[in-house]
Design a protein around this nucleic acid. Structure first.
Length: 850
DNA sequence: GCAAGGTC
C-alpha cells in the first residue's frame, strides 16, 4: 500500500485554489507541475482541470473529408484522447502514487462526466487507489467541509448520459456537416455546418425572417386630444369597445376614423367620466443568472459575446462570482449585510450600500431557478479601483454590483391615475404614473422609471380640448430577434447551455449564416435550413434536444444504456442519409446558388457575368467579375471591415449598396461604382512638400523605381481613392508611399492657418448635418501623430516606430517626455543616458518620428 | 477542418 498523497481533483483552477484554502485553513501552498497549478498542504494535493481535458473524435483515418463518405461516419468508431496534454500529464504524475483520490468537479451532469474522465486517467496509472466523489452546491466553508466529511461514489450512469450526448452530437454534426459541405463543394474555411443546437437556433432566425417577409401590413388610425386643466395640459387617447367588449385604440376603417376626428375637432370641452387611482408594487428583480446578465448588458449596448468575455475577466480577477450559471437563488450562506458592508467605504457605491444597510430587514429576491453548481452572479466583495478596470469592465462591474444592490433593496411603489372623459360622445383616456417610492430604482438605474403626468381631476369636471390629432399608422411585422432575446428563447426551448448559448450565436456569425445586429439570416442560412427541413428535419428542431434529454434521464436512472440510446440515434440518422444521398446534387446546387447570391453585387458593366465580392490573397476584400479570367473588371472596397451587401440598389448603376461591418466602426460604403467614379472625377489638391521626398526633405534623395535619382520632388496632396477613402499622400505614389489618413465623413476644408513645425496648412472638417460641430483636425502630420499616440495607450513616445512600452519608460527616465524633445535630442548624448540604446537607434527613431 | 460541452 502506497503512502502517497491524497489527490483532490476539481473542474477548474479557481475552484482548486478555493477548496484548498478551505480544507487547509488557508495554509495551502501553490506549486506548479507541467505548468499546472497544484495546491499542497499536509499530505494533500489539489489540482484543477480545465473542464474536459479529453475529447471525443473519430480515428485519424477518417480525417480526410474527400476520402470518407459522410455516411460512413455514422458507424465509425469514436476515440477519446487528451486535449489538454499538460494537465493530463500532471494529473497522471500525481495519481501514480496517490493513496486516495477525491473527485470534486461541479455538481451537475457535465461535472459528473468530467469527473469520470479524470477517474479513467487516474485508473490508467493506478489500478487500486480508492476514488471518491464529493458534491457541494457552492464553494463555502460549511458546504465543502460537509461534503468532504461525507464522500460518495461517482455516478457512472449520470456520466454515461453525458457521454451519450457527446456521441450523438458528434455523429450527427460531423456526418451532416461533411455531407452539406461536400455537396456544395465548400471544403475550405467556409464549410457548411449543422448541429443539434446551432440548427434550431438558425431556424428560429430564418423563421422570423420568413414571417417578416410574408407580413402584410394593415392600415389603421389612432386619435389623440390634448386636455387642459387650469394651465396644465396632458395627452389623452381615443378608444372604443370592440365587439368582444375589449378596449381598443386602433380604428381600422379610414372613414370611421375621419368621422371620429371631425367630432373630436369640433368639441371644445370633455367631461370627466371616471377617475381611478391605484398603487402598484414594483418588486426588485431576481439575482442574475447568465441569461439575465447578458440581457441587462445587452441593454447597455454590449453584445452577448462581449458581455461574457468581460464577465470572465472580472471573474478571473476575483471581482465577481462565476459568470456561467443558471441559478437565480442566492445560497443560504450569502450574508447580504456582510457583502454590503464591503462597499460602504467605496466612492461610487458607498452611499447606496450604507442606505441599504439601514433597512430594517434585508430579504434578497429569488428567481425560479435553483441549481446546485454555482450561485447567481454577484460581486465578491473584493473591490477593484476604477483604474484597475477598463471603461467597459467598470461598466459591467457596476451593473453586477447594482444588480446585487437591487436584489436586497425594497420594492418601488407607483401611483397610477387613469382618467376617462367624454368628448362629444367619444371616449378619451389618459394614463398617468408617478413613482411615489423609488425603492430599488434608487440603486439600479437601468430600468425605465420615467413618469407620465396626468393632473388631479374630479368626476364631472370639464376640461378644455386644446389640440386634436389623427395619426395614420400601419401594423408592423414581428421584430427580429436581438442577441439577448435569442438567448432567452434558446433557454426557454431548452437548447444549449448557459456557457454555450452566446458562443452558438457567434458561430452563426462565423459561418456566414447571420449578419449585422440584430442578426439577419443570409441566403446561405435559408438554404441550409430549407435543405435540413426537407431531409433532416430533426437537426433544425428543438425536438432533438428534448428527445436526447429524455434519453439521458433514462440512462441516468438506469432505465436505458448508452448503447441503446446511441444505436437508436444512429438508425434514425441512417434513414436521414437515405433521402439525403438520393438528392445530394440538388441540395448542393441550391446551396451553391445561395452562396453566390450572398456575394453578388449586380451585373458586370463589361461582360455578361455578375460582379461578386471576393477576397484577395492578402486577405482584403474587393469586387471582381465572376467571369474572371475572361473578364478582369474590378472595383476596390474600403480596407476596414467585412462587406455586407444591402437590399438597397444604386439608381444609376443598378449595383447593390455595400455596408462595411466593423463593429462600432461600421459604415455604409454605398455603390462601389459611384465611389470609384467620384474619385476619378476629383483632382488631387496639393498642400505642401512631401516630408520624405519633397524639396525640403533632408533624409533621402528621391529615387525612381530603378533606384536612380529621378530629379523630381514629391508634394503632398489631398486625394480621394477609388475605394472611397481619403488621405494626404505623396504625388510620386507609388514611388513614394508616404501617406496620412483623413476621416471618411465630412467635407475637407484647407484653412489659411499653417503648422510651423511641418509647413502644412491646418485642415478643418465640416459636416452637412447642421447640429454637428466642425472638427479642427489641424496639421495632418500632428493629427496623425496624436492619433497614433492614442492608439499606443496615450503615450506619445510609443507612437514612434521602434519604441515600445519599456523603451518609452527608459526615455522618460532620461528626460525625454514627448516626440519634439526626442527629435531635438543629440543622438550620442541620449544614447549615453539610455541603457542598451546606441546613437544609430536614436537617429532611426528621429527619422521615424517625421 | 466536422458538434456541443466544459474552461481561459
Amino acid at each position: 500500500m502506497s503512502k502517497g498523497p491524497e489527490l483532490i481533483i476539481t473542474e477548474k483552477d479557481n475552484a482548486a485554489r478555493r477548496i484548498a484554502d478551505i480544507l487547509s485553513g488557508e495554509s495551502a501552498e501553490a506549486d506548479r507541475i507541467n505548468g499546472v497549478n497544484v495546491y499542497k498542504w499536509g499530505g494533500k494535493r489539489c489540482i484543477g482541470l480545465s473542464g474536459h481535458v479529453v475529447g471525443v473524435d473519430f480515428p485519424p483515418e477518417y480525417n480526410d473529408w474527400r476520402d470518407v463518405e459522410p455516411v460512413e461516419l455514422i458507424d465509425a468508431p469514436i476515440d477519446k484522447h487528451p486535449t489538454q496534454e499538460n494537465i493530463v500529464a500532471a494529473l497522471r504524475r500525481l495519481a501514480r502514487n496517490a493513496r486516495r483520490v477525491v473527485i470534486a468537479t461541479d455538481y451537475d451532469r457535465e461535472g459528473e462526466l468530467i469527473g469520470k474522465e479524470a477517474y479513467e486517467l487516474v485508473r490508467d496509472v493506478n489500478e487500486d487507489v480508492p476514488v471518491d466523489r464529493v458534491r457541494f452546491s457552492s464553494i463555502t466553508d460549511r458546504e465543502v467541509t460537509e461534503a468532504f466529511d461525507n464522500p460518495d461514489g461517482l455516478d457512472f450512469n449520470l456520466a454515461a448520459a453525458g457521454e451519450a450526448r457527446q456521441i450523438v452530437d458528434l455523429v450527427w454534426g460531423a456526418a451532416l456537416t461533411r455531407f452539406l459541405s461536400l455537396s456544395a463543394r465548400q471544403l475550405g474555411d467556409d464549410f457548411i455546418s449543422v448541429g443539434r443546437v446551432q440548427g434550431p437556433t438558425l431556424k428560429l432566425i430564418v423563421d422570423r425572417e420568413r414571417e417578416i417577409e410574408a407580413f402584410d401590413p394593415e392600415d389603421y388610425w389612432e386619435l389623440f386630444a390634448d386636455l387642459q386643466k387650469d394651465s396644465e395640459s396632458f395627452e389623452a387617447q381615443y378608444f372604443y369597445l370592440d365587439e368582444d367588449g375589449n378596449e381598443a385604440e386602433r380604428v381600422w376603417d379610414g372613414d370611421d376614423a375621419e368621422e371620429a376626428y371631425e367630432t373630436l375637432r369640433n368639441v371644445e370641452a370633455a367631461t370627466v367620466d371616471s377617475v381611478r387611482r391605484r398603487t402598484r408594487t414594483d418588486d426588485p428583480p431576481a439575482p442574475f443568472n447568465t441569461t439575465q446578465f447578458i440581457r441587462a448588458a445587452g441593454s447597455l449596448g454590449y453584445s452577448a459575446q462581449r458581455a461574457m468575455s468581460i464577465a470572465e475577466d472580472l471573474y478571473t480577477a476575483g471581482y465577481i462570482t462565476y459568470p456561467r450559471t443558471d441559478n437565480t437563488v442566492y445560497p443560504e450562506d450569502l450574508d447580504p449585510r456582510e457583502l454590503l458592508d464591503a462597499f460602504t467605504a467605496n466612492r461610487t457605491f458607498g452611499d447606496d450600500a450604507q442606505n441599504l444597510l439601514e433597512q430594517e430587514e434585508i430579504e434578497p429576491t429569488a428567481g425560479d431557478n435553483e441549481t446546485t453548481d454555482h450561485p447567481p452572479i454577484h460581486p465578491t466583495g473584493e473591490l477593484p479601483s476604477r483604474s484597475d478596470l477598463t471603461e467597459d469592465e467598470w461598466d459591467v462591474y457596476e451593473l453586477v454590483v447594482r444588480r446585487f444592490f437591487a436584489t436586497v433593496a425594497e420594492s418601488a411603489k407607483w401611483e397610477h391615475l387613469r382618467v376617462v372623459a367624454d368628448a362629444g360622445g367619444l371616449s378619451l383616456k389618459a394614463n398617468g404614473k408617478r413613482l411615489v417610492k423609488a425603492g430599488y430604482h434608487e440603486v439600479y438605474p437601468y430600468f425605465n422609471s420615467s413618469e407620465s403626468f396626468v393632473p388631479d381631476v374630479a368626476e364631472g369636471e370639464s376640461l378644455a380640448v386644446t389640440d386634436t390629432e389623427i395619426e395614420e399608422k400601419q401594423t408592423q411585422p414581428p421584430r427580429r430577434y436581438g442577441q439577448s432575446r435569442l438567448i432567452e428563447t434558446m433557454e426557454k426551448m431548452g437548447i444549449g447551455t448557459k456557457a454555450t448559448r452566446h458562443d452558438v450565436i457567434q458561430k452563426l456569425y462565423d459561418r456566414n449564416y447571420i449578419e449585422s445586429d440584430p442578426p439577419r439570416p443570409t441566403r446561405l442560412a435559408r438554404a441550409v435550413v430549407e435543405a435540413s427541413e426537407e431531409f433532416a428535419e430533426l437537426i433544425v428542431s428543438e425536438e432533438m434536444t428534448a428527445q436526447l434529454e429524455a434519453d439521458m434521464q433514462a440512462i441516468a436512472r438506469g432505465d436505458a444504456s448508452l448503447d441503446d440510446v446511441t444505436a437508436e440515434s444512429r438508425e434514425i440518422l441512417e434513414d436521414v442519409f437515405e433521402g439525403l444521398m438520393e438528392s445530394g446534387d440538388e441540395v448542393g446546387k441550391h446551396l451553391q446558388k445561395s452562396l453566390k447570391a450572398d456575394k453578388t453585387v449586380g451585373a458586370c458593366p463589361e461582360s455578361d457575368h455578375d460582379l461578386v465580392v471576393r477576397k484577395s490573397r492578402r486577405g482584403s476584400y474587393f469586387i471582381g467579375c465572376d467571369g474572371y479570367p475572361d473578364c478582369t473588371y474590378t472595383l476596390p472596397l474600403p480596407s476596414t471591415g467585412k462587406p455586407l451587401i444591402m437590399d438597397e440598389e444604386c439608381d444609376e448603376h443598378g449595383l447593390s449598396h455595400v455596408k462595411m461591418l466593423a463593429g462600432r466602426k461600421t459604415f455604409v460604403h454605398g455603390c462601389p461604382l459611384c465611389k470609384a467614379e467620384e474619385a476619378d472625377a476629383e483632382e488631387d489638391l496639393i498642400i505642401g512638400d512631401c516630408p520624405e521626398c519633397g524639396a525640403g526633405a533632408e533624409s533621402e534623395t528621391p529615387q525612381n523605381g530603378d533606384g536612380e535619382t529621378d530629379g523630381e520632388h514629391g508634394e503632398l496632396a489631398i486625394k480621394r481613392l477609388r475605394s472611397g477613402s481619403r488621405l494626404v499622400g505623396c504625388t510620386r505614389y507609388p514611388d513614394c508611399d508616404y501617406s496620412l489618413p483623413l476621416p471618411r465623413r465630412g467635407d475637407i476644408e484647407v484653412t489659411d492657418e499653417e503648422c510651423e513645425e511641418h509647413d502644412l496648412p491646418e485642415i478643418r472638417i465640416t459636416y452637412d448635418d447642421s447640429d454637428r460641430e466642425p472638427w479642427d483636425l489641424g496639421c495632418p502630420i500632428c493629427n496623425y501623430r496624436a492619433y497614433q499616440a492614442e492608439q499606443a495607450g496615450g503615450d506619445e513616445l510609443q507612437s514612434v516606430k521602434g519604441i515600445g512600452e519599456k523603451t518609452a519608460e527608459k526615455l522618460k527616465a532620461a528626460g525625454i517626455e514627448d516626440v519634439p524633445s526626442l527629435k531635438e535630442a543629440e543622438p550620442d548624448a541620449l544614447a549615453d543616458l539610455v541603457d542598451g540604446v546606441g546613437p544609430d537607434t536614436v537617429r532611426k527613431w528621429q527619422s521615424a518620428a517625421d
